[in-house]
Nucleic acid binder design. Structure first.
Lengths: 151, 151
DNA sequence: AATGATTTTTGATATGAACAATAATTTATT
DNA sequence: AATAAATTATTGTTCATATCAAAAATCATT
C-alpha cells in the first residue's frame, strides 16, 4: 500500500496494520461478552471506582448525550452498571460500575496488560524503555498533528 | 485507567491511547475531504494502480457486498473512482481510482509517511531498526492473539 | 417567584449495515 | 448444445446506530 523502502514508510505500514488489528480485537472482545461495541467502549472508560454522569461520558466518547442514555440503558439492563440520581444535583445521573461491571473491567484490563506482557517477552528487555519512548513520541506526534487545524 | 507501574501496563496504556487518536484522526481526515468514514477507508484500500472488484473490496473491509455497492456509488458520484464492467467476466465490476482518486491516495500516503518521519526525527537513528523490530513483534503478537479462538 | 441555564430523557429522523430476493453472467453437467 | 448450478452485483427491506429538537426536571440568579 505504501512503498516500504524507508524506515518511515515501514513504520507507517506497521501502525496502520496495528490499528486495524486493534479494532478487530475490540469487536471480537465485545461480542464475546454479549455487548455492543458502543457498550463495550463505554464500559472500558470506567476506572473501577469512578462515578461519572451522562454528559461527561458522552464527551469522552464523543457521542451525543441522547445516544449515551440508550447505551447506558443497555448496560443497566445487562447489570454492568448502576444509574442513580446524584443527590447533590438532581439533574445529574451518577453512573457507576456494578460489582459485575467492576470485575469485567478488571478482567479486561488484566487481559490487556497480559497481552502486552507477552509481547514484551519477545523483545529484548534492554529495548523496553526504548519502545516505550518511541511509542510515546508516536502518540505525542499524533496528538500534536490532531490539534493542528490547518491540514 | 490501568496502573502504570509496569512496562507492560505503560505499553498497554500507550497502545490504547494510540488507537483512540488514530480513529479520531481518520474521522477528521475523512470529513476534511467530504467523504464518509466508510468511503475514506475504502479509498485508502487502493494502491494507486490497483483494480479490484466489489467482492474483494467487501472482504478486505469486512463488509457485505451490498454495503459496498452503495459505498462505491458514493465514491463514483464524487468522482474518486471509476466503475466499469470487467470484459473478461461480465459479472464483475472493475473498480479503479480516477486521477482525482489517485492523487488523493498519494497525498494521504505521503502525509501518513511524513508524520512517521517526523516521529523518527525525535528518535536516535541507531534505534530505528530496533523500533521497527519491536513494533513488528507487537503486531505479530496481536495477530497471533486474535487468531486464537479461546479467550 | 420568575426567568434562564443545565442535564437527561423521549420522539422523530437520518445514516450505516446486513439479509433476502433478483437479474445477469459464467461454469459445470448431462 | 441445453439445462442446471454457481457466482457477482444490485435492489428492496429491515434493524441498529447516532443525531437533533423538544420536553421535563432541577438549579442558579435576579
Amino acid at each position: 500500500m505504501i512503498d516500504a523502502d524507508t524506515v518511515a514508510a515501514r513504520l507507517a505500514n506497521l501502525t496502520f496494520s496495528l490499528l486495524a488489528n486493534c479494532q478487530e480485537k475490540e469487536v471480537h472482545l465485545a461480542e464475546l461478552h454479549g455487548l455492543t461495541q458502543a457498550e463495550f467502549r463505554c464500559l472500558r472508560l470506567f476506572g473501577t471506582d469512578e462515578s461519572l454522569n451522562n454528559k461527561t461520558i458522552a464527551e469522552r466518547m464523543k457521542l451525543s448525550p441522547s445516544r449515551l442514555t440508550r447505551i447506558i440503558d443497555g448496560l443497566v439492563k445487562k447489570e454492568y452498571i448502576n444509574r442513580e440520581i446524584d443527590p447533590n444535583d438532581r439533574r445529574n445521573m451518577r453512573v457507576t460500575l456494578s460489582s459485575k461491571g467492576k470485575s469485567l473491567v478488571q478482567q479486561l484490563n488484566k487481559a490487556y496488560v497480559d497481552i502486552h506482557e507477552e509481547i514484551l517477552q519477545d523483545i529484548d528487555p534492554s529495548m523496553h524503555e526504548q519502545l516505550i519512548t518511541a511509542m510515546t513520541h508516536l502518540l505525542e506526534a499524533l496528538e500534536k498533528w490532531l490539534a493542528k487545524t490547518d491540514y
